[in-house]
């Protein structure tokens, strides 16, 4: 196989294609694990990817109540933000802070996607997105602790530090736990997923179908890949630092996530926020312990 030159645009594009396909398979595996635990045969592994592709050829109608440019633009912004986060983080090993910024854009987009439709169900979803945004403390606490250890938030430096000094999970176990909670909140059917709860139909995505839903799901697959990657590389970077080990470890973590999502009930919105705050506080306590 002929490899394109590193940092050429074709290289970056192929990386995006690979990551979205692989994360689509991972999300299919996640559903399969949940189904097996609940003693169902479950859908095939490629089901999530087929859903994503299906939406690209489905008819798109725009509701009368929606505010039109925003309705499309903010869904595209979500996908664009994760493309940026993926290129800066997993591909180029750049600053971690940009991934956090993209995560913030994701949260704002969730809110905007719900509001732009004008549907009451979507508005419930978007107001819950604001509520769950208050619980993103682990996202901020964990990098701060990592910075205290490594004196850098460039991902390449963090990996190099861990290759010399051993994985950060040994030094900051509770911060790793908090980041793991963050990864859980981004998987489908998770206990903290108040935004996607079935009690409000499909949350903020209720009125998004057709092409826009396809683009949204593409963004979410990339988001799953990026967050899993961040968790693995920042806390287990001493062992997991080549593409093969990263992809294998992602399959392993997806198994664990499947078990968690299958065996836990959905918590109430306020409890979800409280539980995530407890884990963030535990991560802060990590500083006092070491």
């Amino acid at each position: 196989m002929i490899y394109p030159a590193t940092n050429s645009m074709l290289y970056l594009f192929l990386e995006i294609i690979t990551a979205s396909l692989f994360a689509g398979l991972l999300l299919g595996l996640h559903r399969k694990v949940i189904a097996r635990i609940q003693r169902r045969p479950g859908p095939p592994l490629i089901q999530y990817m087929l859903h994503t592709l299906k939406f690209f050829i489905k008819e798109l109608t725009i509701p009368d109540t929606s505010s039109m440019p925003l309705y499309v633009a903010i869904a595209l912004a979500l996908a664009g933000a994760w493309v940026l986060a993926f290129l800066v983080g997993p591909v180029l090993l750049g600053p971690y802070i940009i991934i956090i910024m993209c995560y913030a854009v994701h949260k704002v987009s969730e809110h905007g996607i719900g509001l732009a439709t004008g549907s009451p169900y979507a508005k419930f979803g978007s107001s819950r997105a604001v509520l769950s945004a208050t619980s993103e403390m682990p996202l901020v606490v964990a990098p701060a602790l990592v910075f205290v250890r490594t004196n850098s938030l460039i991902l390449q430096d963090i990996i190099n530090y861990q290759i010399i000094n051993g994985s950060l999970v040994n030094q900051l176990p509770l911060a790793a736990l908090a980041t793991f909670i963050l990864v859980i909140t981004k998987t489908p059917f998770n206990p903290f997923g108040i935004v996607y709860g079935k009690d409000i139909i499909s949350g903020f995505k209720t009125e998004h179908f057709g092409v826009i839903r396809g683009v949204l799901m593409f963004g979410e697959t990339l988001a799953f890949f990026v967050l899993l990657w961040c968790f693995l590389v920042i806390f287990f970077g001493g062992v997991i630092n080549t593409p093969l080990t990263i992809l294998l470890a992602m399959i392993g973590v997806t198994f664990i996530l499947g078990f968690i999502c299958a065996l836990t009930p959905m918590v109430a919105p306020y409890h979800s926020v409280m539980i995530q705050w407890i884990f963030a506080l535990l991560a802060i306590a990590n500083v006092l312990l070491i």
Partner: peptide, 15 residues
């Protein structure tokens, strides 16, 4: 990191 070295594996698996 060159993840796309696994692109043929993934695409053939999907096919």
């Amino acid at each position: 990191m060159p993840y796309f070295q696994f692109l043929p594996h993934i695409v053939l698996f999907i096919i």
